Amino acid sequence: MTTILEQASQQSPEAAPARKFRLRGISAWAIRVLLGIVFSFPLLFMFVSSLKPDAQIFGDLSSMAAFLPVGDLSTENYQAVFERVPAARFLINSIAIAAVTVALGVLINSLAAFALSRLQMRGKGIILTLIIATLIVPFETLALPLVWWVNKLPWLEINGFSLSLTTGWLDTYQVQIIPFVANAFSIYLFHQYFESIPKELDEAARVDGAGWFKIYSRIIMPLSGPAIATVSILTFLPAWNSYLWPLMVVQSEELRPVMVGVQYFFQLNVSWGEIMAYSSMITLPVVALFIAFQRSFVNSIASSGVKG
């Protein structure tokens, strides 16, 4: 008996830190789960409400039933969405606009960041500072001058087998894409991530006869997966959520994105079940994109923060 007590007394000082560390880990996970539940409540309410009629939505607001799929559930609100607005067309437009904006944004911003990170030139720091300084200018102050400029820009229009030069980008797809391709924050993220890649790789490639574009496409970009994922998400979100700019420059219904379609549901008879159904449809792609790239997103932000 004495031997057992002596062994326990010898082990307790070493076991205490391990037990404390284990309890700390459990507490951290409990806090994360709790925060996850709290932040998921709005999404859960939106999706559950999209399956209920308006009367039941308001009737359940005073209880936890508002977050539970109980009562008169159906997909009638989703069917009504496609009857009330051209939702399929809006979704296709937003997917196309966001995809092209992301593709061009990754290319243009990464090239700009590569030049600032790798090429030897005077004033690189000043140029990067000026680029970052543009982030303090709100878009609302640039919207009206930008509308004037895009209305004066030329564009090649294809009519059958002939090309004609037209003036003005209003009411087109390109006016919703090109003004938002270059982004100061994306350039900054790429620049910070490129700085974390050893420049000895560039020197070895230059010795082997590789040019700068080959170094960019064969060495730097393949090593920059987290940065590409982060920039893709941060470019996709504004393109998908764009509302003010399309209202200003797009008049044709067949060119409008999904966010403009929200205002259709506040005309005449307002149906909150249909609004929740439409909101669920346009939220799902964003949630799916973030879940798919969340690990790369976190890694890139961590790398940029440490390097900065």
Results as ranks from 00 to 15, higher is better:
residue 19 R to D: 05
residue 21 F to I: 07
residue 24 R to K: 12
residue 28 A to L: 10
residue 29 W to R: 12
residue 30 A to V: 13
residue 34 L to I: 14
residue 36 G to V: 11
residue 39 F to Y: 13
residue 40 S to N: 05
residue 43 L to K: 05
residue 45 F to V: 10
residue 47 F to P: 07
residue 47 F to C: 14
residue 50 S to Q: 05
residue 54 D to S: 13
residue 58 F to K: 02
residue 61 L to K: 01
residue 76 E to R: 14
residue 84 R to C: 01
residue 87 A to Q: 01
residue 90 F to P: 01
residue 95 I to L: 15
residue 96 A to F: 14
residue 99 A to Y: 03
residue 102 V to P: 05
residue 103 A to G: 10
residue 118 R to K: 13
residue 122 R to M: 08
residue 127 I to F: 14
residue 127 I to W: 09
residue 128 L to Y: 12
residue 130 L to H: 05
residue 134 T to K: 12
residue 142 L to S: 10
residue 143 A to I: 07
residue 146 L to M: 12
residue 146 L to S: 12
residue 147 V to R: 08
residue 148 W to R: 09
residue 157 E to H: 15
residue 157 E to V: 14
residue 160 G to H: 05
residue 162 S to C: 03
residue 171 D to T: 04
residue 174 Q to K: 09
residue 177 I to N: 00
residue 186 S to G: 10
residue 187 I to A: 03
residue 188 Y to A: 03
residue 189 L to R: 02
residue 191 H to C: 02
residue 193 Y to Q: 11
residue 196 S to T: 15
residue 197 I to F: 08
residue 201 L to I: 07
residue 206 R to M: 03
residue 210 A to W: 02
residue 215 I to K: 03
residue 216 Y to N: 04
residue 220 I to N: 01
residue 237 L to Y: 03
residue 240 W to F: 00
residue 242 S to W: 00
residue 249 V to K: 04
residue 251 Q to S: 15
residue 253 E to K: 14
residue 257 P to Y: 01
residue 273 G to Y: 10
residue 274 E to D: 15
residue 274 E to P: 06
residue 276 M to F: 15
residue 287 V to C: 01
residue 291 I to H: 00
residue 292 A to R: 01
residue 293 F to P: 00
residue 298 V to R: 08
residue 299 N to H: 11
residue 302 A to M: 10
residue 303 S to I: 08
